[in-house]
């Protein structure tokens, strides 16, 4: 008997200690925007339900195991033949159904709400930020402002940000836990995420979808500012930041960690990775590991020109392989 009771006590104790110890500063419990807040409401609601279930089941378990344990006094007790009880079985089928329904309603509501601009901000015009993830950095383009940043993103407070996610390489997941939930960024596809920051502040953002050696450090900073500060920053960038060339961009996409960078134009001028059949700058030979047996790397044949419409005028030349390395720069300059 000691067995089960002790395990029960231990689990509860451990839970209690950990809960009291960290709940206050856990990032998911500290929402800084309406999206994160609506998710937290849902989480809190589910936590209440779950704790209720845990308490009921644990209590019933503890009671039954304690009461019907084998003792010296009951060794000649022979349990009755008992095959079930239809009423009881219907009851404990119905209760979970009710719980599931109770959880479903707010879940579905929140799912639909998160796909739209958060409530109360519909009036404000969203700021579009194109996010391009690459190994292992985040590239943010502001098409309206015509500027681009790497590994940090400045946003105005109290204004919905329309993040349009795509990837120049592996699949990543874009997550700013303080502001809201995450979404994948994938090559040849565009996903979308609306987030709003309540106040000026600095928040951590990162990739949560494993994508190779540099994954652990693939973080960025979100800097929420007042609209005035944001406008000032944009102006400053336009005036002082260098221009990004396609050649530099291609270099930037190679697997590496970069610090912060700022440019006064965007790579959307020559490539949008979310478009199917767009130019890709993948160089498999740069992903070789230090140990292990090397495998074949496949040469890409040029695509038929029928697909030309999808991409920019650059879309044909760039399918990567090790042979074209030398001629690459030249090809680009040719445009």
């Amino acid at each position: 008997m000691k067995a089960s009771k002790l395990s029960l006590v231990l689990t509860t104790l451990l839970g209690a200690v950990l809960l009291s110890g960290c709940e206050n500063n856990m990032v998911v419990f500290q929402p800084q925007g309406p999206a994160a807040r609506s998710i937290l409401d849902l989480i809190n609601f589910s936590l209440v339900m779950m704790f209720a279930i845990i308490i009921i089941v644990f209590a019933l378990f503890g009671f039954i195991v304690w009461k019907y344990r084998e003792k010296k006094e009951n060794l000649d007790y022979e349990p009755p033949e008992e095959h079930g009880n239809t009423v009881l079985e219907i009851i404990w089928t119905l209760i979970p159904i009710i719980i599931v329904v109770a959880l479903t309603i707010p879940t579905v509501k929140t799912i639909y709400a998160l796909d739209k601009i958060p409530k109360g901000y519909e009036e404000k015009e969203p700021l579009v930020v194109n996010v391009t993830s690459a190994d292992w950095k985040w590239i943010f383009s502001y098409p309206e402002q015509g500027i681009e940043t790497v590994n940090y993103v400045n946003i105005p407070e109290d204004r919905p940000i329309d993040f349009r996610l795509t990837s120049a390489s592996t699949m990543q997941s874009f997550w700013i836990p303080s502001l809201g939930g995450q979404k994948y960024s994938m090559a040849n596809a565009e996903t979308q995420l609306y987030l709003v920051a309540d106040n000026p502040g600095s928040y951590m953002g990162r990739n949560t979808n494993f994508n190779g050696k540099g994954y652990a450090e693939m973080e960025f900073e979100v800097q929420s500012q007042t609209q005035k500060d944001f406008d000032k920053w944009v102006k400053e960038v336009k005036a002082t930041a260098p221009k990004l060339s396609e050649k530099e961009y291609e270099k930037m996409l190679e697997p590496s960690h970069l610090g912060r960078k700022t440019f006064s134009n965007t790579h959307l001028d020559w490539v949008d990775h979310s478009k199917g059949q767009s130019q890709n700058y993948i160089k498999p030979e740069l992903y070789k590991r230090e140990h292990g047996y090397p495998g074949k790397i496949f040469k890409e044949e040029k695509l038929e020109t029928d697909h030309n419409q999808h991409g920019t005028d650059h879309s044909q030349h760039g399918n990567m392989n090790e042979e074209t390395n030398d001629s690459h720069g030249g090809e680009h300059n040719g445009h």
Binding site: S38, S173, Q182
Partner: peptide, 16 residues
């Protein structure tokens, strides 16, 4: 906790 993860909107914060 599986039920919590099943709630898609909440999963956006738990995933990965």
């Amino acid at each position: 906790t599986g039920v919590m993860l099943a709630m898609a909107a909440a999963d956006y914060q738990y995933h990965n």
